[in-house]
Computed example of a mutant assay.
Amino acid sequence: MATVSLTGASKEDAATVFGVLRTAFPTDRPSDDVPQEQPGDRTAVWTAEFEPTQEWIPTDPIPLEGSVSATLQGGYVAVDQLREALDVTFAVDERGTASGDQEKELDLRLTTKR
């Protein structure tokens, strides 16, 4: 299991990223659950958990309106599989990483693949 948190994105771009991951892997969110704007001046953070599997269905590149900051956190294999799925669909710029005994955290910037 790995957690994906998205920030700095429109709700449409967040829905696009989660949609790609939902197509590839089981998630804790129902299929009709989409990111919603929250009132106020706070920065939105959208989060979902995914259970990466060895066999997943890659998707073609999908455009984003802007860039999306994504943090992937979980076991090494799960985080690597999520990153691989994102890398097939979006341009991925790795911004940072933190590793522990059992978990890994990746900070990524996602944009449209050119």
Rank of each mutant, 00 (worst) to 15 (best):
A91F: 14
T71N: 07
P35E: 08
T59V: 04
V34T: 14
D107T: 11
Y76Q: 03
A24Y: 09
P58K: 02
A70K: 11
G96A: 11
G66P: 13
L108A: 05
T47V: 12
V20S: 04
F90W: 06
V34Q: 11
L82C: 10
D13Q: 10
D33K: 08
P35F: 08
T16L: 03
W56K: 14
T27M: 08
L108Y: 10
Q73A: 13
D93R: 12
E12H: 11
K11D: 10
A70F: 05
K11H: 05
D13R: 14
G100E: 07
V92S: 07
E103S: 14
T71I: 07
T16F: 02
T23S: 12
Q73G: 01
A85V: 06
V20W: 03
L21G: 06
V45Y: 01
W46H: 14
K11L: 07
P26G: 02
E103N: 12
V92N: 08
V34S: 09
A70R: 11
G74E: 07
T47Q: 15
V88F: 06
S10G: 14
S99M: 09
L72M: 02
E103P: 00
S99C: 04
R114V: 11
A98V: 10
Q36Y: 00
P58T: 09
E105D: 04
V45E: 15
V20N: 03
P63T: 14
D33L: 09
D32Y: 15
Q54L: 10
D93Q: 14
T53N: 00
L106F: 13
Q102W: 06
I62G: 00
V92A: 09
Y76V: 09
T27L: 01
F50E: 13
L64E: 08
T111P: 05
V68L: 08
P52W: 09
D87V: 00
P26F: 04
A15K: 08
T47Y: 13
D13M: 09
V88M: 08
Y76E: 11
G66D: 13
R109G: 02
F18I: 01
E65I: 02
R29F: 00
A15V: 03
T71F: 02
R109E: 15
E49L: 05
F25C: 03
P39L: 07
D32N: 12
L110C: 10
T23G: 05
G96Q: 08
T27G: 06
T16Q: 05
M1W: 02
R83A: 14
T7R: 15
V77Q: 11
T59H: 00
P52L: 03
F90S: 06
E49K: 08
E12S: 09
T71E: 15
E84F: 01
D87G: 15
K11W: 05
